[in-house]
Every structure is written in C-alpha cells, then in structure tokens.
Design a protein around this nucleic acid. Structure first.
Lengths: 190, 190
DNA sequence: TCGATAAATGAACAAAAGTTCATTTAGTTT
DNA sequence: AAACTAAATGAACTTTTGTTCATTTATCGA
C-alpha cells in the first residue's frame, strides 16, 4: 500500500505561513493553502481533520520550534550577562529567520482558532525565561521590578529589531544586533 | 426627510473593534458587526460601500485618533527628557485606553484589507516622532544610533507595558508607568 | 508482475458570509 | 396633518469557502 508522505505536512505548514504574512490570518482559505503547497484541496483533509485542526497543529509546531531555539547554547553556569545575551540573540535570530512563524503566532493570539488553553501553554513555556530573569535580579545586575514586566521588555525589544529590519529593509548586521542588545541591556541593568 | 444618524458610525466602529479583540480580524462578519451594533445588516451598507470600505475607514479613524493623542500637551521648548516623557506616556495611555484599536491596527498590518499605501501613510505619521528623536540625538542625551531603530524601541517599549497590563491582569499604576518609562529611558540615554 | 490498499485528486455539495432590495419606519417640509 | 424622502429593516439572493467522495494514481507485499 501507499505510505503517507510526511514531508507534505511541512509543505502545508510553509504554504500556510506564507499566506498569513501576505494576507493575514483573515485571508487564508483551504483552496489557497492547497494551491500554494501544490496539492489538491482534498489532500489537506488527509493530513488534517479540518481547517481548525490545521491551524492548531501549525500553532503548536511554531511554539515548540521557537522554545527549543531560544535556549540553544545556553549554560546556566555562564555569568548572567553572557547567558542573557545568548538567549536574547537566539530569540532575535529565530524570529527573524522564521519571520512568517512569528507573524502567524502574533496574529493567532487574537483569533477564533487558538483556544485559551493553548495561550496558557504558551505562557508556561516562558517559564525558563522567567527563571533566567529571577537569577538576574538575585545577582543584583537587573532592576528590582516585576519579573513579568522585565520579561515583556526583554522579548519586546527583539520585536522592535525585527520590525526595524523587516519593515524598513535593513540588513541584520552584527553591528545592529550589538546596538539593539545594548538598548535592551541598558534598560534592564541596575 | 429623515437625516442620517452620524452617531451610528461610531457604534459600528466600536462594535467592530470589540469583535476584532474577541475573534481577531479573521473572525468578523457583517452579520456579527450589525448584531453587536444593534442594527440590521442592511444598515451597514448605508454607511459603508462594503466590508472592505468599513475596515478601511475604521483603520484611518484609528490612525488619526492615535496620532492626535500622541502630541497632546507636548511643547518643543521643554527640556528633551520632559517632552519625551510626555509623549511616551501619551502613547501608553492612549493605547491602553484604546486597546481594541491598538489590537485592530496591529492585526490590520498583515491583512488583505489594508493596502500598501495606507501603511505608507502610517509611516509618514510617525514623522513628528522622528523629529523628536533627532532632537534628542543632537542634544547628546540619546544614543547615536539610527533614528528609526530608536523609534521602534521607544514605541515598542509601550507595547510591552500594554501586554503586561492586559494579559497579566495588572493595574496601570503611576508606579508601573514610572518603572516602565525608566526601562525605556535607560535604554535610550547615552 | 499483479493485486491490494491507501494516498491523491478535483468536481460536486453544503455551509457560511457578503450584498441587495422590496417594504416599513421616522424625520422634515409645506 | 399630509406628503415626501431617506434611513432602517431583514429575508432573499449571490458569492465564496469549507468539506466530501467517487475516481485515479502510486507504492508495497506476495
């Protein structure tokens, strides 16, 4: 018998993400996804129960991929600032290289597709970052403010760079990374 | 003859914004908008050519309202930091009090509704902020980096506070405003 | 090589959403 | 107060989109 082609899921995901960046989550249809993935519309229903299921699985996929990427190369034994820099740059790189996924996840947050529980899970996955920031506070190198506020500021500052690069046609040079990191760091540090 | 009730446009806009926050721009239908605004669906077509027109006009309305609010009480003769603080807090307040509008504008950016030219116009409306930041650089109080990057960082830092407040059920106290402003200011200052 | 089985297809069907329009309602004018 | 006109209505119509299914195609095991 014929085996299922598991690479197709990747094709479908990639096509969907591209469409979301082009049209927003409002504009995507099953037909368009199929067309962009070079498949028949019916084929989508072999791999996904329905549109809802497709979007959901894509969301989970994006979330997991990003969390994995964030902590790559991080060693809790490094001095705080070094560890912090590694993670900050990981986040930045991942979200620029997976810009489509980043836009999709942002759009998903306010959408009928993603449930409250999925959002809850996303928050849970910020927990390792939470610990990192607490460490910075204990070591007296980071301001004594609410950890969540500090985290929002940290993650948000990568957002700003991404918008800067993508919407103003700038190149992501080491210089810019360094500059943007300094903006964030000087804000957080005591 | 019967006069057009111009307050209805406000009703329709408010209903649409509420729906966007609840369902995302993906989930809104003309029927739902009408229902939430306590109107018949047909009435929407008296005030707007079609759905596209409705979304467009709402976008313009939100954009204009925000730009107006940003510079309220700003006086170019004030010392830079004072002027900067006024505008930063204006942005923050406006976007929290008009959270629906802020979500809508963010979602609109990647959507089939908003054209390239509308986005271009939005960028133009950042121009006054651009001048402000250049002033800060000339006065040697702000870091010598690309003005657009600095602006993204400034506006983005209000974003972070908004997410903090709205998604983590915090109250917007003067304390938090002060803390968040310091995060941003310490990042930017030389 | 052949038969079996599931993937793949896309036209057809069903459901949902956008839009229209004949009719009713409510101000305005004379 | 009556005539007039445009707003308001919501059921009906049209278009778009999600989903199914009979048919074809490709792969695997015997």
């Amino acid at each position: 018998m014929k085996a299922r082609d598991e690479t197709k899921i990747g094709q479908i995901f990639a096509a969907t993400l591209q469409l979301v960046v082009e049209m927003g989550i409002a504009g995507i249809t099953m037909r368009q996804i199929a067309k962009k993935a070079r498949l028949a519309t019916g084929t989508l229903y072999i791999y996904f129960r329905d549109k809802d299921d497709l979007i959901h699985q894509l969301y989970e996929d994006c979330r997991n991929a990003s969390i994995n990427a964030y902590f790559k190369g991080y060693d809790p034994d490094l001095p705080f600032k070094e560890g912090f820099r590694i993670i900050w740059i990981n986040i930045l790189h991942f979200r620029i290289e997976n810009f489509d996924a980043a836009v999709f996840m942002e759009q998903s947050y306010h959408s009928p597709f993603i449930s409250e529980s999925s959002k809850e899970m996303s928050r849970d996955l910020l927990r390792p970052l939470f610990k990192l920031m607490e460490r910075g506070k204990e070591a007296k190198v980071v301001k004594e403010l609410d950890t969540v506020l500090l985290l929002m500021f940290m993650v948000g500052s990568t957002n700003d760079v991404i918008k800067y690069i993508k919407y103003h046609q700038r190149k992501l040079t080491d210089d810019i990374i360094q500059q943007a990191f300094t903006l964030c760091w000087d804000g957080l540090k005591r």
